[in-house]
Simulated scan of single mutants.
Amino acid sequence: MKKLAIFDVDYTITKKETLMELYIYSIKENKKNIKYLPRALFSGFMYLGKIYDEKRVKESFLKFLENFDEEEFKKLMKRFYKNRLSKIIYEDSLTMMKKLKSEGYDIYLISASPEFYLNELYAIKEVDKIIGTRFGFSKGKFVRSMDGENCKGEEKVKRLMEVLKKENTKVDFKESYMFSDSLSDKPLFDLVGHPYLINYKKKHDIEVLNWK
């Protein structure tokens, strides 16, 4: 049976929230994207007011990428990874991936962030599988309609199990690891024998690791 080392992404292996970093990066490439800032702020307020759920917030926020040509879109994601995303990864997270990979673990990244840029993290040679929130293209253009549910909480476990079933993979969860900055990942924490909170500020029964 396989043993997994599962990592959340935002604030777990990265120092910042990655979707916002993508938006900021897009402004650096195209100053006109600043016009979408009021929409982003409005969506955030609607979420805090519990009027929008996370799915609606993300679909609204991604207006700055709507109708982007698929080939140019892919090139943008590669530039984002090279020029920004790769530079905000905690060195301690990479060290842990290398350690567990050398001990025979498969490295899985499971995040609520969009797969369309998370997939660039396959550039980290230790990473075996990436599971995130899915979006797609229609007639060669990006559409900001979410494909399925937001990959958070119980949905992360559901998506993981779908992948394992599809690939006919058996996992020893008692010997597996889970790393996250947030208790929203409790469903995954409860699944494994070795859960760890990353840079968590409060006392908790789950052991806290401080990564830089």
Rank of each mutant, 00 (worst) to 15 (best):
K87M: 07
I130C: 01
V57M: 08
G44F: 12
I6M: 15
L191I: 08
D128E: 11
Y52P: 02
F7V: 13
I13Y: 01
N150W: 01
E115Y: 14
D147P: 02
G104L: 12
D8S: 09
K55Y: 13
T133D: 03
L109F: 05
I107P: 03
E91S: 11
K139G: 03
K203D: 14
I130N: 02
G153K: 10
E126P: 09
E21T: 10
L109K: 03
E120V: 03
S138E: 15
L41S: 06
N83T: 04
F42R: 11
K16C: 07
D181F: 05
A40N: 11
E54V: 09
F64N: 04
M161H: 14
G153E: 14
F80G: 04
E66L: 15
Y122M: 13
I24P: 00
K31H: 10
V9Y: 00
S93L: 01
E154W: 06
D181S: 11
K158L: 11
L197E: 09
P195T: 12
P38N: 09
F68E: 01
K186R: 15
E175R: 15
G148N: 13
K35H: 07
L197M: 09
L209M: 15
E155M: 09
Y108K: 10
Y196P: 11
L19F: 06
K28I: 08
E21Y: 12
